[in-house]
Amino acid sequence: MDWLALDLLPPLLKGLKITLLLTLYSIILALCFSFLAGIGRLSHSRILRSIVAAYVEIFRGTSLLVQLFWIYFALPMLLDIRLSAMTAAVLALGLNYGAYGSEVVRSSILAVPKGQVEASIALNMTPYQRMRRIILPQAWAMMLPGFGNLQIELLKGTSLVYLITLMDVTYQGITLRSFDISRTPAIFAWILILYFVTAYALTLLIRFAERKAAAGRG
């Protein structure tokens, strides 16, 4: 059983725990930004619209890794604060994928038929009720495939945090390698498998959510 190199797993799984936590926190933050920016971009207020557009374009127009480095190395100098690697990583991933996610939110909201809004106006719902009860529940079902792709991209993006010395699965792998270079192939094989399994689990999760969102609508 030596060729399975199972002894590599405990340290790698320790790293995977960080990767998973980071993924979870970042997805939550990215979802918040997606909805805030996606809805903000459809606001009547011109100022709000341009602020949101600037955020989205800047984060989509530059690299995730550059953003990560900027937040981890430059931002603390600029504001004279201390940021842990974890905080910086969650911020960078959340802001970056939030910008991409906002486009998913925006286009899904716009894809809800106009008649739905009109019907909710005719029933005298307030703008908040229209959004909360009529538009978002329908848009949500349309957002899921887009969110599914983005969360896989986000998971892959978490590997970059190794470069700011956060001890994720990649970092653990590189450390293991420094102990025994001869085991490099086995280490990377395990890392790839762990990422793949995680990505697959995330895909199943989204499929479950898609099925739930479509329930009963035939």
Binding site: P113, G115, Q116, E118, A119, A122, I134, P137, Q138, A141, R217
Partner: peptide, 9 residues
């Protein structure tokens, strides 16, 4: 409305 505009969800 002409096209009903019922809430499908």
């Amino acid at each position: 409305f002409q096209h009903f505009n019922l809430f499908p969800h």
